[in-house]
Computed example of a mutant assay.
Amino acid sequence: MEAGIVGLPNVGKSTLFNALTCSVAAQSANYPFCTIEPNEGIVSVPDDRLKRITEFIVPQKIIPAALKLVDIAGIVKGAAEGEGLGNKFLSHIRQVDAIMQVVRCFEDPDVTHVAGNVDPIADIDTIETELVLADMQTLENALGKAQRSARSGDKEALLRVSVIEKCNAHLESEQPLRTLTLNPAESNAISSYGLMTAKPILYVANVDENDLEGKHPLVEKVRAHAAKSGAGVACVCAKLEAEIAELDEADRAEMLADVGLAEPSLNVIARETYRTLGLQSYFTAGEKEVRAWPFAIGSTAPQAAGVIHSDFEHKFIRAEIYSLADLEEYKSEKEIRAAGKLRAEGKAYIMQDGDICHFLINP
């Protein structure tokens, strides 16, 4: 699972990406299209439950869950018609599972805004319009083929035509597809199209270092907009976080204390992105390693086991599961087992966030 960082040029997108991935790459120049190919990075997802587990199970290694981020070059008005290498940039968005849109919520005369003034809602509308237009084009191209297949009475093709028409009507009302309710069969019928407005989105408000809590009216406008479609919002001062990311641990803690942050805002961004992707974590714990594994909400035990290795899903027998609360109460897995708290779960079990697991598989 991966998220693509998008935004208009000069909103702090690449600065945020560099900070998130602790990149040492040289900062890009202050002009549009400085990032031509998407940069990719792996980001750890902070989770204090890992530390709590290791108080009772001491491993050689601690491995947090991770997610992949893609820094996609700035989009401008007209991207759907190819402006600013738009087609190339839009193709990168089609390949990710969720979108992080960075919106500028700070004033700085030294950083030029591509539209001439700072207006995060106008920025959001610009990008959303381009994605809506691109999705309409994709569906229009797909409709003819689906209609030809439907003439034979093929049920799948008939459903596909119906869903395409339903989606197009929604897009024509200038609404993104993430606000359209489709049943599983309908979603599956168009899943291969990579429709961008159907992807979940997280708005990242890039704020001034004097507004780390995001109380500026510009941020409130972003929150109000996001609430209409159930999107998340996270605040970050990308410039400050880039400076913090370059410090060693001791200096980092001191700087965080100086600015009144309990943790880097990047930690919040990573967790919110994880949530936006629809992911939760289960844990495996032993002397070799204590590790967090990502799984899609609603996954069965075999599907979650398959995250470790695809063979684990096909050869799954059962899962032995206990909770962190059990570990903190009984202090060891041996005592959890002795107390009858170690649960045996089969193939139909729906994994829960925070489960600590052993998977038993066929050889």
Score class of each variant (00 low, 15 high):
residue 49 R to W: 06
residue 50 L to M: 05
residue 51 K to V: 12
residue 51 K to G: 10
residue 54 T to Q: 13
residue 54 T to C: 15
residue 55 E to V: 11
residue 57 I to E: 05
residue 57 I to K: 04
residue 57 I to L: 06
residue 57 I to G: 04
residue 61 K to H: 14
residue 62 I to P: 05
residue 63 I to W: 06
residue 63 I to R: 07
residue 64 P to T: 01
residue 67 L to E: 03
residue 68 K to V: 11
residue 69 L to T: 06
residue 70 V to A: 09
residue 70 V to Y: 07
residue 71 D to N: 13
residue 73 A to S: 14
residue 77 K to E: 03
residue 78 G to H: 03
residue 78 G to I: 02
residue 79 A to S: 07
residue 79 A to L: 03
residue 80 A to N: 07
residue 81 E to T: 08
residue 81 E to S: 13
residue 82 G to F: 12
residue 83 E to I: 08
residue 84 G to N: 07
residue 86 G to F: 06
residue 87 N to K: 14
residue 87 N to P: 08
residue 88 K to P: 01
residue 88 K to A: 13
residue 88 K to M: 08
residue 90 L to H: 02
residue 90 L to W: 00
residue 91 S to W: 03
residue 92 H to N: 15
residue 93 I to R: 03
residue 93 I to Y: 02
residue 94 R to G: 04
residue 94 R to P: 06
residue 96 V to P: 01
residue 96 V to F: 03
residue 96 V to D: 06
residue 97 D to L: 06
residue 97 D to G: 08
residue 97 D to V: 03
residue 97 D to Q: 12
residue 99 I to K: 01
residue 99 I to A: 01
residue 99 I to E: 00
residue 99 I to V: 11
residue 100 M to H: 07
residue 100 M to K: 07
residue 103 V to G: 01
residue 103 V to D: 02
residue 103 V to M: 04
residue 103 V to F: 03
residue 104 R to I: 04
residue 104 R to K: 08
residue 104 R to V: 04
residue 105 C to W: 10
residue 106 F to S: 06
residue 106 F to V: 04
residue 107 E to R: 05
residue 109 P to A: 11
residue 109 P to S: 12
residue 109 P to Q: 11
residue 111 V to G: 03
residue 113 H to M: 10
residue 113 H to L: 05
residue 113 H to G: 07
residue 114 V to G: 00
residue 114 V to K: 00
residue 114 V to E: 02
residue 117 N to F: 09
residue 118 V to R: 01
residue 119 D to W: 08
residue 119 D to F: 06
residue 119 D to Q: 10
residue 120 P to L: 04
residue 120 P to N: 02
residue 122 A to W: 00
residue 123 D to E: 01
residue 123 D to A: 00
residue 124 I to G: 00
residue 124 I to V: 07
residue 124 I to R: 00
residue 125 D to V: 03
residue 126 T to W: 02
residue 126 T to R: 01
residue 126 T to I: 01
residue 129 T to Y: 00
residue 129 T to A: 01
residue 129 T to M: 04
residue 130 E to A: 08
residue 131 L to F: 05
residue 131 L to H: 02
residue 132 V to Q: 08
residue 132 V to P: 05
residue 134 A to N: 04
residue 135 D to P: 10
residue 135 D to C: 11
residue 136 M to G: 12
residue 136 M to Y: 07
residue 139 L to N: 07
residue 140 E to C: 09
residue 141 N to M: 11
residue 141 N to Y: 09
residue 143 L to S: 10
residue 144 G to V: 11
residue 144 G to S: 13
residue 144 G to D: 13
residue 145 K to R: 14
residue 145 K to N: 09
residue 148 R to C: 09
residue 148 R to H: 11
residue 149 S to A: 15
residue 149 S to D: 13
residue 151 R to W: 05
residue 152 S to N: 10
residue 152 S to E: 11
residue 153 G to D: 09
residue 153 G to N: 09
residue 154 D to P: 09
residue 155 K to V: 12
residue 155 K to P: 05
residue 157 A to N: 10
residue 158 L to G: 05
residue 159 L to D: 06
residue 159 L to Y: 05
residue 159 L to S: 08
residue 160 R to T: 13
residue 160 R to E: 14
residue 160 R to F: 08
